[in-house]
Write a protein that binds this DNA or RNA. Structure first.
Lengths: 143, 143
DNA sequence: GTGTTTGCAAAGTGTTTGCAATTTA
DNA sequence: TAAATTGCAAACACTTTGCAAACAC
C-alpha cells in the first residue's frame, strides 16, 4: 500500500524503457498502461490527466506519447486527417474505425484473417500490415 | 484534334458528376484522370499544375480535390500524420506505403486476400476495409 | 443577369520546437 | 552539479474559410 507499490508497474515499464521516471511520466504511464486497452488522442490524454489532477503541459503530453511509442509501450494509429491516436495495446491486431464518432476499437485477432499477402517491391520488406475496417450506421444506405 | 476533343473525357466526367466544367476543374481533371493511376497530395498537384502552366490557387486545389472525392472521382487515403493522399484509382484495392519516402503504391487486387472479416458492432455495418502494407528497407533489421 | 466558382489572405487545428527554469540521479 | 526533462510561447505544416471579383450558363 506504499506509494512505491502503487507505482511499481508503471515504474518498471519506464525503467525497462530507459526513461527517467519523472512525476509526469509516471502519472501518464499509470493512466495509459494500467487501465486496459485504450485509444487516445493527445488532447484526450491531456484532458484526462487534468481531470485526474495531474498537471502536465500539452508539450509534455506529446513528448511522452512519442517517447512511449519509440519505446514500444504504445502504438500510433493514423486513420483520419488531423490527429493521431495512441493505442495502449501494442500486440498485433487491427481496428474498427467509426467514421461518425471518430472512435477506434480493437478487432479481436481471430476475427480477421489475411490469407494472402503481396510480395514487397524489390529491396523492401513488409514492416507491418495494418487493417482499418471503417464502419457506418447500419441504417444508412450506401450513398 | 479540336480543343473539344482534347477535353472530352475530363469534360464528361465533370458533367456526370454535376460539376461545372470551369477552366481549373477541367485542367485538374485532365491531370488527375487521364494519366493513369496516381497518388498525389494537394501540394504535389499544386506544383504539377503550375509546372503545366495551369494557374490555380491552392485553395482551389483543395476545393477541387474534395469535390472530386465526394463525386467518387478520387479516393482519399490517410496513412501518415499531416497530409492526405488522393488516389485516382477508385476501384477496390489496397496500398503499399513506403515509410522512408512517403510514397503510396497500389497492391494488385489478386495479391492480397482477406479470408475472414469481423462482424461489425451492433447497429453498424462495414463501410470499407482498408489495408496498408507498410514497407521498410530490406537491409534494415527489425529495430 | 444570377448563381457558382475562384483566389487571396486570414484563420484554424493539431503538432513541434527553442529555451530558460526545474527536476532527477 | 551535470544531464535530462518540463512548460511556455512561438513557430509550423497542412487545411479550411470569408468574401469580393471573375466566370459559367
Amino acid at each position: 500500500m506504499t506509494m512505491q507499490r502503487t507505482y511499481s508497474k508503471a515504474l518498471d515499464r519506464l525503467k525497462n524503457a530507459n526513461l527517467r521516471p519523472t512525476r509526469q511520466r509516471l502519472a501518464l504511464a499509470k493512466l495509459l498502461l494500467e487501465n486496459g486497452h485504450r485509444h487516445l488522442t493527445a488532447e484526450e490524454l491531456f484532458h484526462e490527466a487534468r481531470a485526474n489532477g495531474i498537471m502536465v503541459s500539452l508539450a509534455t503530453i506529446y513528448n511522452t506519447l512519442h517517447q512511449f511509442t519509440s519505446a514500444g509501450l504504445l502504438r500510433e494509429v493514423v486513420v483520419d486527417m488531423g490527429q493521431s491516436y495512441f493505442d495502449t495495446n501494442t500486440s498485433h491486431h487491427h481496428h474498427f474505425f467509426d467514421e461518425a464518432t471518430g472512435k477506434l476499437s480493437d478487432i479481436p485477432d481471430d476475427h480477421i484473417e489475411i490469407s494472402r499477402l503481396p510480395t514487397p517491391p524489390d529491396g523492401q520488406q513488409i514492416d507491418r500490415v495494418e487493417v482499418i475496417v471503417r464502419l457506418r450506421d447500419a441504417a444508412s444506405t450506401s450513398n
